[in-house]
Design a protein around this nucleic acid. Structure first.
Lengths: 202, 202
DNA sequence: CGTTTTACGATGCAGTCGCAACGTAAACGC
DNA sequence: GCGTTTACGTTGCGACTGCATCGTAAAACG
């Protein structure tokens, strides 16, 4: 048994198991023993890499955020340089929507963490900056390309809220992915005017 | 000690304590003993009115929904007969937003239940009809008063998602109530055109 | 009056929890 | 070579969990 192991790899392995447990049974089912079992390792090993459950949770929360960030930057990277603002926003927001089962699973975990942080203000504070930055970015894109007369800051808040809300309802299975995408495009139509690349309807 | 007590009253009392616990510490802190302590009664009494924890949870979930419904119908009732669609929607959606601490507390509980039902599909199914009905109602209002060219169904999905998303960010404290209200009004502006009753800005 | 029903409070039990403590085997530093 | 460090696996403890059970007091019913 080698003495030197990659800590990051092990922690990622465990966090992965944690997210599987959380996605299937919720955060309250996330215990040392459950996560260890899901990862196929001993409880002692989990304890070796995360000294407390809180530490494990915090790490997993960071993983969730990193995954989303990676998804977005990958999607945006495939877009080529200087895409149109509308295209950029649509790509980014659609990527953040839980449209397939993989993202739905991640979405369930993210939702669980949302409720988790809602009663732990100290943890939640770390997310404010992220939202503010995202809002600023979206506002910039809107300013660059949207109809005159729309307030970029306000429209950005609305657009991000649409994405978040659509995600919630998708996770709950209240409507199919197509409905969410249609609503997203409708929202973009409202801000940018009808998309010339798409028939104004379906 | 009277033999005859109002079961509904007792259950409401307990559910109220449950919601206080859930709002402050999350659903995972909701245990027989905690709820009993918060309600100032014995654990045995809680067990007398709710035979299982699940039964208690289900009841509390219903209470959350009833509260929102009551809030909305009260707000709409104060609006007089046949209000303008835009006014009606704005009143309804603003009422559902967690703008004050009372609604924020309820919102935290609702968010916790959202994550709770996300891993209990059977419970979640009951919410689909509610969303569908709400969507239908909103679409009707949009059809009645919005700009021509907007698809009522799609716009309804977007509008409801905006409300939900704004609520999430408000609960997280990502921005103040005014920002959320401004975004809501901006959204309504997009659908109905600028509100003549309000200066197109602040 | 007595009996039944309702409304609890108290206790106990099996299971799970986080976490500390301990033991051990393997690799590195010397 | 040997001691130290790292990487675990195992065990156990105290606290908590949901829930069943039991006892009891009081009101309703006959």
């Amino acid at each position: 048994m080698p003495k030197r192991v990659d800590h990051r790899e092990r922690r990622a392995l465990i966090a992965d198991a944690l997210m599987r447990v959380a996605a299937e049974q919720g955060l309250e089912a996330v215990s040392l023993r459950h996560v260890a079992a899901a990862a196929g390792v001993s409880a002692g090993m989990v304890q070796h890499y995360f000294r407390t459950r809180d530490e494990m949770m915090t790490f997993a929360l960071a993983v969730v955020r990193d995954r989303n960030e990676a998804r977005v930057s990958r999607a945006l990277g495939a877009l080529g340089a200087t895409p149109a603002p509308r295209t950029l926003l649509r790509t980014m927001l659609a990527e953040l929507l839980p449209l397939d089962e993989e993202r739905r699973a991640d979405g369930r975990v993210a939702l669980a963490f949302l409720a988790y942080t809602a009663v732990r203000p100290a943890v939640a504070a770390a997310l404010h900056d992220e939202t503010a930055a995202l809002l600023g970015f979206i506002a910039g894109q809107i300013r660059a390309g949207a109809n005159p007369g729309v307030d970029p800051e306000r429209a950005a808040v609305g657009l991000l809220a649409v994405m978040e809300g659509l995600g919630i309802y998708l996770i709950g299975g209240h409507y199919p992915p197509e409905t969410a995408l249609a609503a997203l495009d409708t929202q973009l139509d409202l801000l940018f005017g009808p998309d010339p690349d798409r028939g104004s309807g379906d």
